[in-house]
Amino acid sequence: MNNFLKVAAFSLAVIGLYTFYSVWVIPPINPEAPPKEAVVEEPATVDELVELGESVYNGKGACSLCHTAAAGRAPLLERAAVIAGQRIKEPGYKGNATHAEGYLYESLVNPSAYVVPGFGASGSADKVSPMPDVRGSSIGLNETEIRAIIAYLQSISGVEVTIAPAPTEETKAKE
């Protein structure tokens, strides 16, 4: 019995030390609370749309997690709307978009349609994009949020924002 007590005390001491270290020695970091499913109000003006796009870009959409210079995992998007217009004319482009806005939309919902060289998933020879479809998976953007993102990208690229605040028949036809 004496041995048993010794062994039990030793084991408890080891467990206690590990607990002590994890609870009191390392800095306490509390993970963020799960994001609230916010009700997205339909933006009334272009500015509101761009504003919504910026908040989705940095928040719910988690775009800035990878699309930063520090991460280096994905192309930078400062001039995305400008590049989009040139890209669709390039011979290497195999996607279905016919105009810059359509290219951005396609890149969001079907990232593998065209992968910027060097940014493909490893081992896919730039055929498969590591980016998820923003409508599904863990991101789950709706159409309004996607249009807001495109508007935001256009605004930071310095081109005219061609997305109307509410979807018109014309833009629906384009998509």
């Binding site: 607990t19 609870v23 970091i29 993970p31 963020e32 799960p34 998976s137 863990s138």
Partner: peptide, 23 residues
């Protein structure tokens, strides 16, 4: 990415909390 946890306990616990549970 497919099915969200909507229960009140859906938060991610901290390391300290996990360490206590594991102990």
């Amino acid at each position: 990415g497919v099915m969200r946890d909507a229960s009140a306990e859906a938060f991610t616990p901290s390391i300290a909390y996990a360490a206590k549970v594991v102990s």
